[in-house]
Design a protein around this nucleic acid. Structure first.
Lengths: 194, 194
DNA sequence: GGTAGACTATGACGGCCGTTATAGCCAGAG
DNA sequence: CTCTGGCTATAACGGCCGTCATAGTCTACC
């Protein structure tokens, strides 16, 4: 019934992820997300009854899963290849959007939780980061890296890539991504060959 | 006349930087910034006639200079000590705000420039990143690192710290900062001892 | 053919946004 | 004392925000 084929719902989520990655969460209105996905405003509240927070949460998870899929596949060729693909993926997004788009997960992570509760979208962002780190760390361990070193390095890689993507947008240049790519590559090579 | 002593103006800028680092630029209203600095709304438009963009730009520059001062001082004891202080500075902000505050420069970098122009606040963010990198790279070179290596490593450090700070907020944990700290430290030590 | 339920269309609600205008205050210079 | 000019107070402007309600439409199954 509801899940037969609803390309509209997924289009909204994907579009929301794209817009959030460009403008940030609070600068992206539900009306704009609907229009961007060529969906009526009423539909967004039909598919996402909990409103903006739910849509943001799903956008984060959508991006997380999309990147994780690519990561899993490329890591089959080893950590170095996985890292290369991870960096290439973000480089493509940044460059092809003419330095307008970035990572929606980071965009959501950079907004204050109201008072003392943790909004679901922020929790989803934490999960996505952890997921990417887990994938990288596992591959590193499988290729000979010591456990703690693998975990730390995985964290560094994810954080560095996120930070570098944002930096590239500010500088309107892909140079930072190429610089950190080289540094991280050497680091990964050193970590698995010992 | 205007610059004799106007603590009010600086209070507004400092408060704006803090609020932007928590909620992001577009989620922070001028009214709130004024109230947070206990200044009347009219005063913000008196001190910053170009409105929100100008205030954001000054907040970014203010933070940039503040961090650069600390960085310059600590780098006198060498790159390793400078890196340690850099990380400690952000760790303090993140932890003491109970994972609510981050870096206002990153917050500004993560908002889409409208159409094809570059807002001054975004340009300021790029400048601040470059400034921090320059300081680190110079210190690395002075301590024996090769020029290109120094530049790349400096970029990695700044980007990684920015990304890690955001990650800590999402995870509500300082662990990522401690992890990347260790990795970066080893990297810096290796780069200057050769 | 009828009926249920997924989706859409439309419009309204109060509220906050950035910005501007205008008039008033009040210290310090002459 | 007067007057100037930095600063404040107050109110208003149009506009977009998130959300909700209600009445439709249309499709798929009985």
């Amino acid at each position: 019934m509801a899940e037969r084929r609803t390309p509209s719902r997924e289009r909204i989520v994907a579009g929301a992820a794209d817009m959030i990655s460009r403008r940030g969460l609070s600068a992206t209105s539900i009306r704009e997300m609907a229009k961007h996905a060529k969906a009526p405003l009423g539909s967004t509240y039909h598919y996402f009854p909990e409103g903006k927070q739910q849509l943001a949460t799903e956008a984060v998870r959508y991006t997380g899963e999309w990147v994780a899929r690519s990561l899993r596949k490329e890591l089959e060729s080893g950590p170095v290849e996985g890292l290369r693909a991870f960096l290439a993926l973000w480089r493509k997004i940044v460059v092809e959007s003419d330095f307008h788009a970035g990572c929606p997960v980071l965009a959501v992570a950079v907004e204050e939780p109201p008072a003392d509760e943790v909004p679901p979208a922020l929790a989803a962002a934490a999960d996505v980061f952890a997921q990417w780190e887990t994938l990288l760390a596992a591959s590193l361990r499988e290729h000979g890296a010591e456990a703690e070193q693998a975990a730390q390095l995985a964290t560094l890689v994810v954080a560095a890539v996120e930070g570098t993507v944002a930096m590239c947008r500010a500088k309107r240049s892909a140079q930072p991504l190429d610089d950190t790519a080289e540094q991280l590559r050497a680091l990964v090579v050193g970590a698995i060959k010992r």
